[in-house]
Design a binder for these strands. Structure first.
Lengths: 165, 165
DNA sequence: GTGATTATTTATCATATGATAAATTTTTTC
DNA sequence: GAAAAAATTTATCATATGATAAATAATCAC
């Protein structure tokens, strides 16, 4: 039984929706996706992932609880969907695979900790400039309204920051 | 050769200092510690850990680079220091241990993602109240100046929030 | 226990960001 | 390619938080 399968999604469609337990880990083959959720009916982008990155709604995947997050395609996107149950079962016989997985989680953990730092004490403008510098492709491929909530500000505020040269 | 050893630290002393590569994972047996760093010469608390929690400066531990973070004892603290190199070597022969470690990292990852959400779109007051509710022991055992930077605000601002009812 | 140090609060003023509404630009659809 | 829809910017006003300084309270050292 195959562990992975390739799936295609049109721009603007949802790959996974809110309310179901996450049992899939995705790998972005082509395109861009985002994880998002709603706070007080406002759409908030938690993260973006481009080509060659893994995407999963970690909390649901690791706890088995229904996810409050959705995954959406920002461009036409080709994903490789990995059945997490099958993958995790493989770990019993292939500890090298489990190690690889562990390393990936470790790296994700480090990058979220760094993001906390940035949200903790950088101004919105600093965060925008850092993003611009670190990931210019984000600016090119992601609508500003998604970038704004990712940075923890409103779209209007982001517009103002961009205008202030 | 022992993998773990028990160490004691007086309140206010540093357990690990900035600039060295982290090769130790700690387990808090008694007391409270914090991970902190400096931004523009300002002391910022990244996280607290109480009894029965693991503490490590993840970025340095996982990348091998010198850490920009320090670990300090907030109370008199007894730590169990685990030699990470020895532990990681054990994973080669004990994949069950590696699995345990993976699960711990997964849980840490989930909690940092939740913290990002809170910093992304909650007001300082909401963050304070959430902390108060979720971890009343934090308020009892951690000086407010550390809590303030943990929440991403100044101490003065935290004082004001506390005073507003 | 007294003086010195450190932590916390209070006050004042400045500013970044939010909220709302409207104008403009860009993209999509047919 | 024109009309409609969506994204982005601009403007105005309100407010939460920062910066600084000073007052008070709590803790520590001897």
């Amino acid at each position: 039984m195959a562990i992975c399968k390739e799936l295609e999604f049109k721009k603007g469609t949802n790959i996974q929706s809110i309310g179901h337990t996450c049992r899939t880990i995705y790998f972005v083959k082509k395109g861009v996706v985002r994880i998002f959720y709603y706070k007080d009916a406002i759409d908030i982008t938690e993260s973006f992932e481009f080509e060659n990155a893994f995407v999963a709604r970690a909390e649901s995947l690791f706890t088995g609880k229904p996810s409050q997050k959705a995954i959406g395609a920002i461009e036409d996107t080709t994903m490789i969907a990995i059945d997490s149950n099958k993958l995790f079962r493989l770990f019993d016989s292939h500890s090298d695979l489990e190690r690889l997985f562990r390393k990936i989680i470790e790296a994700s953990y480090v990058s979220t900790v760094n993001r906390i730092e940035s949200l903790q004490f950088n101004t919105a403008e600093e965060r925008y400039k850092t993003l611009l510098k670190a990931s210019p492709n984000v600016l090119k491929r992601i609508p500003l309204k998604f970038i704004a909530s990712y940075l923890g500000i409103t779209q209007v505020s982001l517009s103002r920051i961009r205008a202030s040269k």
